[in-house]
C-alpha cells in the first residue's frame, strides 16, 4: 500500500474522528483558541493603533515594535510563556495574543495615516465632531488596511496554534508533534493536511470579511501588490510560522 493510500485509510478510520484525540475535537480546540486569541488581540490592538493614527503620534514606535516582534520567533515566545505560567492552554493563549497584537496595531496606524488629509479637513469643515470624523470618515477609509492587519494576525495565530501542541496543549498540531515523536509519518502527514486546510480556510474567510467590510467606494482601489506601501517600507504580511 502506498504512503498516500495509508494516509487515506487514516482519514477513513472512524476511530480517528471521535473522542478527545479525535479530529472533530482537535479541530474545535484549534478554532476556538484561534478565534479567542484573534478577537482579544483585536480588542487590544485596534484602539491603540486607531488612537495613535488619529493623533498621528508614536507611529515610529508602533512600527519599530512590530519589526522587533517579527524577529522574535513565535516558537520562543510560546516556550517562554510556558516557563512563566506553566504548561497548557493559558500560555498558548497568552503567546498567541502577544503575537497577534503588533500587526493589528501597525496596520491600523498605517491605515489611519494613509488617509488623504483633505478628507479629514473636509469632514471637519462640514462641522463633524472628532468622534464623527473618526467613526464616519477615518475608520471606513482605513478599513482595508486595518482588516489586512487582522487577517495577517488571524492566519498567523492559526499557524502558531499548531506549535502549541509542543507545550502540552491540544489542537491539530498534536497529530504532527505526536507523530514526529513516534515516527508515525502517516499521522504527521494527515495532521499537516488538516492544518494546511484550516489555515487556507482562515485566510480565505478573513479575506472575504475584509471585502465585505471595505466600503464599496474603496473596492476599486483594492490591488494585490500595494506597491506604494511596499516601497515605503510598510510592514508586509508576516510569515505563517
Amino acid at each position: 500500500m502506498s504512503f498516500l493510500q495509508e494516509v487515506g485509510q487514516w482519514f477513513l478510520n472512524p476511530a480517528h474522528w471521535q473522542g478527545t484525540g479525535g479530529i472533530l475535537n482537535r479541530l474545535q480546540e484549534h478554532v476556538v483558541m484561534s478565534l479567542a486569541a484573534t478577537v482579544t488581540a483585536t480588542l487590544i490592538g485596534l484602539p491603540i493603533g486607531l488612537a495613535l493614527g488619529h493623533w498621528g503620534k508614536g507611529g515610529g514606535l508602533a512600527i519599530n515594535v512590530a519589526n522587533v516582534g517579527r524577529a522574535i520567533p513565535s516558537f520562543a515566545i510560546l516556550v517562554i510563556a510556558v516557563q512563566v505560567v506553566g504548561i497548557g492552554a493559558t500560555p498558548a493563549f497568552l503567546a498567541l495574543v502577544a503575537l497577534a497584537i503588533p500587526p493589528i496595531v501597525t496596520n491600523s496606524f498605517v491605515g489611519m495615516r494613509d488617509i488623504d488629509p483633505e478628507l479629514r479637513d473636509a469632514a471637519r469643515g462640514l462641522g463633524m465632531r472628532e468622534k464623527a470624523v473618526l467613526l464616519k470618515v477615518e475608520l471606513p477609509n482605513a478599513m482595508p488596511v486595518v482588516m489586512a492587519g487582522i487577517r495577517t494576525s488571524g492566519v498567523q495565530v492559526v499557524a502558531t496554534a499548531t506549535l502549541a501542541a509542543l507545550v502540552g496543549w491540544g489542537g491539530l498540531g498534536r497529530y504532527i508533534v505526536d507523530g514526529l515523536a513516534n515516527r508515525d509519518f502517516v499521522q504527521v502527514f494527515a495532521g499537516a493536511i488538516l492544518v494546511a486546510v484550516l489555515s487556507g480556510l482562515a485566510e480565505n474567510g478573513l479575506a472575504a470579511l475584509q471585502k465585505v467590510l471595505t466600503p464599496a467606494g474603496l473596492r476599486l482601489r483594492d490591488q494585490p501588490l500595494k506597491s506604494a506601501a511596499i516601497r515605503r517600507g510598510a510592514p508586509q504580511a508576516e510569515p505563517a510560522s
Binding site: G191, G200, A240
Partner: peptide, 21 residues
C-alpha cells in the same frame, strides 16, 4: 503571486510535516 501566496499561508510546521515522509 497567488501560488507563492498560497504556499506562504501553510504553517511552517505543517509544511515541514508534509515533506518529512
Amino acid at each position: 503571486l497567488a501560488s507563492t501566496g498560497a504556499l506562504y499561508t501553510i504553517p511552517s510546521l505543517a509544511l515541514f510535516a508534509l515533506l518529512v515522509p
